[in-house]
C-alpha cells in the first residue's frame, strides 16, 4: 500500500469531502493563499477558489463564530485553528454557542461544524504554544472530540467528522504532521466513537491517543524484550469514548496504564482512569497507572523540555510498576 504523510491524509480528507459536498468549506488563518501554516490545505485554494477556501484575519473567536452561524443554516464548515492554543480565544463560541444550540432550541438548530488544527507540543515552542487542551472540549456535552494517531486514522476520522451532524473538535498532533503511514487509495471512513487496538498483548493495557500512541508502541517493544506483552488501545475518539474496547482489553490483561501528553489533573486520562477503576475494579490486579506531562508550563530550554513530557522510559517503568516488576 502507498504511504503518505499525516498532513496529506488530512488534505485528502478535506479535498474529498469538498468535492463530494458543495456545502463544505474551509476557513481559517493562512488556509488559502499560504496553503496552510502546516500545509494541510495545500492546493485547496487553487482547486476550490475564494468562495470555499477562505483566509481570515487573526480573530479566532470571530471566525469560529461565523463558522457556527453558517452551520446553523446547514453549511458544513471546516474551521482551521492554526493551533489549539489559539482556540482558547474561541472557547466561548464553541462552548456557549456550538455546544448549546441543539439542546436549547429543542432540536431545531444543529451545528455540523468541524474545528480542527494542531495540538500538543511541537518542540521548543515555549509554554504558550505547547499545550494539550482536549480536556476543555471533552468536558462539554454537545461536543465530540477526535484525535488521530496515524495518517490512516487521520483521513478516515476527518471524513467522518465533516459528515457528522454535531460539532466536532478535531485535534492533530503538531509533531505528527510530518509522519508517514499506509493510506489506501480507495475511500474509507472510520466511525465516530470507535477505538482501535494498535498492538495486541496479554499482560498490561496501555490506553494512549494522538502522539502518545507512537511512544506506547516503542515502550511495548522495550517491554517485549523483558517478556512483558503490552496491548495498546487507541480510543481515537475521546468523546464519545469507546469504553468497551478499553474494558475488554482490561478484562484480558487485568492491568492498565494511561499515557497522555496533557497534564494529569482534571484530564481525559483522569476520567478514563476513573472509569476503569470503577467499572473494572474486580478485574484489576494493580492500580491504574498514569503517565502525563509534568504539572508545569512547558519550558523552552532544550534540556528542560524533554523532562516535562512523557518518555518511553516513563511508560516502561509505569507498565513495570503495574506488573509489580
Amino acid at each position: 500500500m502507498r504511504e503518505i504523510l499525516f498532513r496529506q491524509a488530512l488534505n485528502e480528507a478535506i479535498d474529498e469531502e469538498m468535492a463530494r459536498d458543495k456545502d463544505v468549506f474551509l476557513m481559517g488563518e493562512e488556509v488559502a493563499e499560504y496553503n496552510g501554516a502546516y500545509k494541510v490545505s495545500q492546493g485547496l485554494w487553487d482547486k476550490y477558489g475564494d468562495k470555499r477556501v477562505i483566509d481570515t484575519p487573526i480573530a479566532e473567536a470571530g471566525f469560529a463564530g461565523i463558522g457556527i452561524g453558517a452551520a446553523f443554516l446547514g453549511l458544513k464548515p471546516v474551521i482551521e485553528m492554526m493551533t489549539f492554543n489559539f482556540c482558547v480565544l474561541a472557547l466561548d463560541q464553541i462552548v456557549n454557542t456550538a455546544a448549546k444550540s441543539l439542546y436549547m432550541s429543542n432540536g431545531q438548530i444543529s451545528c455540523p461544524i468541524v474545528i480542527r488544527g494542531a495540538g500538543g507540543a511541537g518542540g521548543a515552542l515555549g509554554a504558550q504554544h505547547s499545550q494539550s487542551l482536549e480536556a476543555q472540549y471533552a468536558h462539554i456535552p454537545g461536543l465530540k472530540v477526535m484525535m488521530p494517531s496515524t495518517p490512516y486514522d487521520a483521513k478516515g476520522m476527518l471524513k467522518t467528522a465533516i459528515r457528522d451532524p454535531d460539532p466536532v473538535i478535531f485535534i492533530e498532533s503538531e509533531v505528527l504532521y510530518g509522519s508517514s503511514g499506509e493510506v489506501p487509495e480507495e475511500e474509507y471512513m472510520i466511525p465516530m466513537g470507535v477505538g482501535d487496538i494498535k498492538r495486541e498483548g496479554t499482560d498490561c493495557t496501555i490506553v494512549a491517543w494522538s502522539r502518545m500512541v507512537g511512544y506506547a508502541l516503542k515502550a511495548a517493544e522495550v517491554l517485549a524484550e523483558d517478556g512483558i506483552s503490552v496491548e495498546i488501545v487507541d480510543p481515537r475518539t475521546i468523546r464519545p469514548l469507546d469504553k468497551d474496547i478499553i474494558y475488554n482489553s482490561v478484562r484480558k490483561t487485568n492491568r492498565a496504564v494511561i499515557v497522555e501528553e496533557a497534564w494529569g489533573f482534571a484530564s481525559v486520562g483522569a476520567s478514563i482512569s476513573e472509569l476503569i477503576s470503577r467499572e473494572m475494579f474486580d478485574h484489576l490486579d494493580a492500580p491504574v497507572g498514569r503517565v502525563n506531562q509534568r504539572d508545569i508550563p512547558t519550558p523552552y530550554a532544550f534540556n528542560l523540555e524533554p523532562l516535562a513530557y512523557p518518555t518511553v522510559e516513563n511508560i516502561v517503568s509505569a507498565v513495570r510498576k503495574a506488573c509489580y516488576l
Binding site: 441543539l102 439542546y103 444543529s110 454537545g142 465530540k144 451532524p165 466513537g193 464519545p240 469507546d242
Partner: peptide, 10 residues
C-alpha cells in the same frame, strides 16, 4: 437533543 447523532457503541 444533546446530540443529533450519538452513535457511540456504548
Amino acid at each position: 437533543h444533546t446530540y443529533v447523532e450519538w452513535n457511540s457503541p456504548i
